[in-house]
Nucleic acid binder design. Structure first.
Lengths: 366, 366
DNA sequence: AGGAACGTTGACAGCGCTACCAGCACCGAC
DNA sequence: GTCGGTGCTGGTAGCGCTGTCAACGTTCCT
């Protein structure tokens, strides 16, 4: 029922103005800048609008003002837990503002990103949130020519297009490896999937830390371009074991992989952390619930999204934040899976109280 | 750089028309219904548009045509894996169409949903996707009065507003319990969190199956309004064990809870499935990777999203699908965690080959 | 007292596009 | 030959709102 399209029938600004006894333009101002009206007219317009149930026509507003109230968001994946947290932050922060979110999925393709960017920019968005710092030259040029504020999220790097909020994946990986070193682990494997730029930088951080310690060995690194999954974690770990049976720790580029490694160890009856220590990345909720609890690098995903949206909206509204590049840092959350190496290791006795302890990091920030 | 707002400077339809040597209205038709033009003009307009890099102004189009090309989507959560799969389906299916997705998060509140609905409807969306069948009376009235196609997703029920796509959570839960019965389990606990309408219907299905078998006991049911999490699965399971130490199976309202139960069992050294069988819901990816592999009820989330979007777009374009109510069904994916009960249970020997087998269901559909 | 400065208001003219309807050429049918 | 149909094209008139600028009354300064 009621499926057919009908004529407008909506009440317009002019009606509100008439009822309020003011000119349309004054009514218009009420909705955009109420302070500019005298108190008397303000209340008259307000009650008239309420009485009539007036809802502004955004299309007309956009047409007349040459500006939309849309924030474009480009993210590489809709599946990934990481981005759903970021997105939630973005949506939460934009709620209540007059801006609406236009989301698009680049599927980890910078060419697709370029295409979507062109599409977005053509609609003159009020602002833009893009993921990462690895745009094509063309995308980069478009972004720099865009006449709206832009926030790059997920990581920080040199030459921001405009604003930037994230953390150093490189440093975060180094901190994870430093932690494993501190616990006495030496032969540390790396397991990574999808290998998008941020995962690549985690690998770079791992490699640099291992090289500095004189422990790097290419055979310790197992990666694939395949999208990440828990199952894949087990598969890659199996590969790693095949190449280097003597590893004493594994650093996974994300928590799903770590969970897969945990299960694979259980399957193979490899004790964590006694035989092999395990560290993940992102600190998803299940890491604290696993048995043993799993060490991970906590990243501030929700905060990243909400802060990005907040900064963007402020910039759109002409109140550019003083800090335009924000490093949200990370924390290694030490849990049982990476407990200190010892000869007479007994399960469950991992340095009483150490589990779940947060440690300040050499390279970390907050 | 380039942050300031500039004047338009865009090329308009009129320019394209001029270059092509046709009237603006003819050029306009080219973009909406190319077949209506003679081949000669069609190619002229096409090349003119390409040459100038013309991009239509959607605001002007919306204003003039009294119609937007926006599909509103209302979902209860951005965090939940379940909805991210559905969303991915929606975005994938809408990609390439001229419709864009406008997403809003009701946070499991039907009052919030009503508010958002009012907001959406005021913008005259081309179509609407709403979650579930439990709207407020007010929302329901608005939906019925809306002059656009609407799809209700996630579940099916009586009195669709317009179109509907989902499955019966009640039947799915019954099928899960029937499976546990078939495996010889009797004292089956229910663990549920958040208790949104769909989880409630899973509980209803559980209750009815248990009552039919004369096995229902209120103490077997542990629920909470708290949002779901893996950790919570362990907590609720602990509650359940406290009340009913003798349970021989647990049916979890979702897979995160099931994972939490798995870990808690590991912590307590309870053997799955020998001492307690475990069944989850949704069949997230990790269920097949866990040790033991975890039985779950597979739901077609991605397909639900993509089909909903496809049906909606067809209806918008005037090609209403013949079937407007679609039951996407479910499947119980039998894995190790629910293997048949036996006296001399030995770990790992759960009926060779049964793991991962898909079974057709009494009440299930495909 | 004269004038500048300010706060407030309104008239006017579009923004870029499409709905609507009219017009034209051409065809076949009566 | 007149009529009505069909296929294509164009003119006109807005859609509902806001940018711009002018005008008004009031206050404050010199």
């Amino acid at each position: 029922m009621g499926r057919k399209r009908t004529k407008s029938g909506k009440i317009r600004l002019a009606e509100v103005a008439e009822l309020a006894g003011v000119s349309p333009i004054t009514a218009s101002r009420f909705f955009r800048n109420p302070e500019a009206l005298s108190v008397a007219k303000r209340t008259r317009v307000e009650s008239a609008a309420r009485e009539l149930g007036y809802v502004p026509n955004l299309a007309a507003r956009a047409l007349a003002s040459h500006r939309t109230e849309v924030i474009g968001v480009l993210i590489p994946s809709l599946t990934n837990n990481v981005f759903s947290d970021v997105l939630r932050g973005i949506y939460d922060a934009s709620e209540g503002s007059r801006y609406s979110i236009q989301l698009s999925n680049t599927r980890y393709s910078i060419l697709q990103e370029e295409k979507l960017l062109r599409l977005f920019l053509a609609q003159k968005p009020a602002g833009l949130i893009v993921t990462g710092i690895d745009q094509t030259a063309e995308s980069r040029a478009m972004l720099e020519a865009a006449d709206c504020p832009i926030v790059q999220i997920m990581e920080i790097g040199p030459n921001p297009v405009d604003m930037m909020i994230g953390f150093s994946h490189y440093d975060a990986a180094r901190a994870a490896i430093a932690h494993l070193f501190a616990q006495g682990h030496r032969k540390i494997g790396f397991v990574g999937a999808r290998m998008d730029p941020r995962v690549q930088r985690r690998l770079d951080g791992y490699v640099s830390a291992m090289k500095e310690a004189g422990l790097f060995d290419q055979r310790l690194v197992v990666t694939t371009a395949t999208p990440t999954s828990v199952t894949l974690g087990g598969t890659l770990f199996t590969d790693l074991l095949g190449r280097e049976p003597g590893i004493d720790a594994v650093f996974c580029a994300n928590d799903d992989l770590a969970l897969g490694v945990l299960f694979e160890c259980r399957r193979r009856e490899i004790a964590i952390p006694e035989q092999i220590a395990l560290v993940g990345f992102n600190d998803l909720e299940f890491m604290a619930a696993a048995v043993p609890t799993l060490t991970s690098v906590r990243t501030n995903r929700y905060e990243m999204g909400s802060t990005a949206a907040t900064m963007l909206i402020e910039a759109i509204d002409g109140r550019r934040p003083e800090r335009t590049v924000l490093d949200l840092g990370f924390r290694v959350i030490e849990r049982q899976s990476s407990a200190a190496r010892r000869s007479d290791s007994k399960p469950g006795l991992t340095g009483a109280g150490a589990a779940n302890k947060m440690i300040a990091l050499p390279t970390g920030h907050d």
